[in-house]
């Protein structure tokens, strides 16, 4: 395909960044005592997005040679990429400001958090629309992809923030039932949305069907089933879901911590693979 792993990294990091910011806002509102996760989310957001934007610039070679050309990116509001730049122009400074305030131990004003929340959703969503409007690729050109990307972004942001909470502030993290429940539900929703997308895309066109086939049984099958479905969706769903919905007790053992780390990391691997696979497996429509 046209794009490769660099762009997949960007799409993943931008999504996870938005998700991390939203997680920190949620933690701040619901668990004011849990400072570690709040700080983690606020710091991760600008760092991840910064790395992602670097990837983006490295991939855009003509701009890399002439960096001033990147200013032209605001020129075409009819392009989703330009709209994404607008979203990032709001989200990145806000996330950066929130992180700096956090480091300086100053309170982050409500209006800043709310601006961040809205722009974070826009950043998470635009990556899906970016691919979604490309009519030439049926795997992308459907209404479900942006939703899938948003759900995955929230899940990845929650996972990376939880990972920090799990390791640095476990006692409090294990008490955060809303976060844990939300995480399980997001994994479940993502499975449903992914399933829906594959069914609809494969019934829509020959090229769509071929794209889906390459994921399910073709060259991308090992990555799809092993990486995305098993490690990225089913394992985290089971690992997080079991204590939250079945045993309903606070875990303290080291084993459960290791398992949880695997679960959260799995979500991150899955989030990256989802974007990589969506980029790689897209076949263009035939015209001859």
């Amino acid at each position: 395909m046209v794009w490769g792993s660099m762009i997949a990294w960007y799409l993943f990091l931008a999504g996870a960044s938005a998700g991390a910011f939203l997680t920190s806002a949620f933690v701040e509102a619901k668990y004011p005592d849990s400072t570690v996760m709040r700080i983690a989310g606020r710091l991760i957001a600008p760092v991840f997005l910064g790395i992602g934007l670097l990837m983006l610039m490295l991939d855009a070679e003509a701009g890399l040679h002439n960096p001033l050309r990147f200013f032209y990116l605001i020129m075409n509001p009819g392009s989703v990429m330009t709209l994404g730049v607008y979203c990032i122009c709001v989200f990145f400074p806000v996330a950066l400001a929130a992180a700096v305030l956090e480091v300086l131990k100053r309170p982050v004003p409500k209006w800043l958090t709310w601006t961040g929340i809205v722009s974070a959703f826009c950043v998470a969503a635009y990556t899906g629309f970016l691919l979604g409007v490309v009519k030439a690729c049926p795997l992308w050109n459907n209404a479900i992809l942006p939703i899938l990307f948003v759900v995955s972004a929230l899940s990845a942001g929650l996972a990376v923030t939880s990972l920090v909470g799990l390791i640095l502030d476990r006692k409090r993290f294990e008490q955060m039932w809303l976060v844990k429940k939300g995480h399980v539900i997001l994994s479940a929703v993502e499975m449903v949305v992914l399933f829906t997308m594959l069914v609809i895309v494969s019934s829509g066109s020959i090229e769509g069907a071929a794209s889906v086939q390459s994921l399910l049984t073709g060259e991308y099958a090992p990555m799809f089933w092993g990486g995305l479905v098993l490690l990225g969706l089913v394992a985290p769903f089971a690992i997080e879901g079991y204590p939250v919905f079945i045993t309903r007790k606070v875990e303290t053992s080291t084993t459960s911590m290791v398992v949880s780390v695997i679960g959260e990391s799995g979500v991150l691997v899955g989030g990256f693979l989802l974007r990589l696979l969506v980029i790689m497996a897209a076949l263009p429509v035939m015209y001859l």
Partner: peptide, 9 residues
Amino acid sequence: CIGCKYCMA
């Protein structure tokens, strides 16, 4: 042109 390859896609 910045070489973003959106046109190629």
